[in-house]
């Protein structure tokens, strides 16, 4: 049962990087792919945001669920991981909120300055997410007790995470047909960049597995959790599939662009 819940945790975190990874990457490259951070780049930036918008709410929730599994199935570890990575987690939350605020608020008022400000928040928050994830994952790979990989190791890991997420975001934007004048990338290319984006999360998770499994909750608790979650798993999967069937089949913008 503990192995099953660790697999769920790994799946959720890998899924987060594979899915939310392209939102983060597209946000990082927003001024580049959109054609500038100023007023002239506004239509281009709108196109990039419209490409990712219908997926964001369904993607970012994978991390919220992963944190929930950590709490429910590995309670002894939850406090250790989050408080051990204290500043990385605080920076991650701040970045996440800044990125989300950019998305939710950018179209809520008129004016070029308003849009440019929140697009800046969206871009900056996305970079913050990539970099803090780099440090957090380096910390997990190093075993939480201090940073054996050092600041340099953290920086290198952050650079790697930022690179794969940016690549994933660019591939996604191209696949959605949001980069005019260039032939769209194929679904196969997108799957490849998703796999690449999940890799920096999967490696530390596999490395940490032997230590984590000893910290699982007792079988009774894990069984209870399986009973409260299991019956709804098909519905959760179906809802995610429905998102992709609804918004994944057509290219570029949807017919209503809220973000």
């Amino acid at each position: 049962m503990d192995i099953l819940w660790y697999a769920v945790l790994a799946l959720l975190l890998a899924g987060y990087f594979a899915l939310e990874g392209f939102d983060i990457g597209a946000g990082m490259l927003l001024p580049v792919l959109g054609g500038g951070a100023g007023a002239s780049g506004r239509p281009g930036r709108d196109r990039i945001v419209a490409a990712m918008a219908p997926f964001v709410l369904a993607n970012e929730v994978w991390l919220i669920a992963a944190a929930g599994v950590l709490f429910g199935a590995f309670p002894a570890l939850e406090g250790e991981v989050l408080s051990g990575l204290y500043w990385a987690v605080v920076a991650l939350l701040v970045s996440w909120i800044v990125r989300d605020a950019g998305l939710w608020f950018r179209r809520r008022a008129g004016g070029a300055a308003w849009r440019a400000f929140w697009d800046g928040a969206l871009c900056l928050g996305s970079w913050g997410l990539a970099v803090t994830w780099g440090f957090a994952l380096a910390g997990i790979a190093g075993g939480l007790a201090g940073p054996p990989l050092g600041v340099l190791g953290g920086l290198l890991y952050a650079a790697a995470v930022a690179a794969v997420l940016a690549h994933h975001g660019r591939t996604f934007a191209s696949w959605r047909g949001a980069l005019p004048g260039r032939p769209p990338r194929t679904g196969r290319a997108l799957a490849g960049s998703a796999l690449l984006a999940a890799l920096p999360a999967l490696v530390p998770l596999l490395a940490a597995a032997p230590g984590v499994l000893g910290h699982a909750a007792d079988p009774g608790t894990l069984g209870t959790l399986a009973l409260t979650v299991g019956p709804f798993a098909p519905l959760v999967v179906a809802a995610q599939v429905w998102v992709w069937r609804t918004f994944g089949s057509t290219r570029a913008t949807s017919s209503t662009s809220f973000f």
Binding site: E60, I64, A65, A67, V69, V229
Partner: peptide
Amino acid sequence: ATETLVAFFLEST
């Protein structure tokens, strides 16, 4: 965990 994994996951999606 159930709140995040089932309820909020579905709500957000």
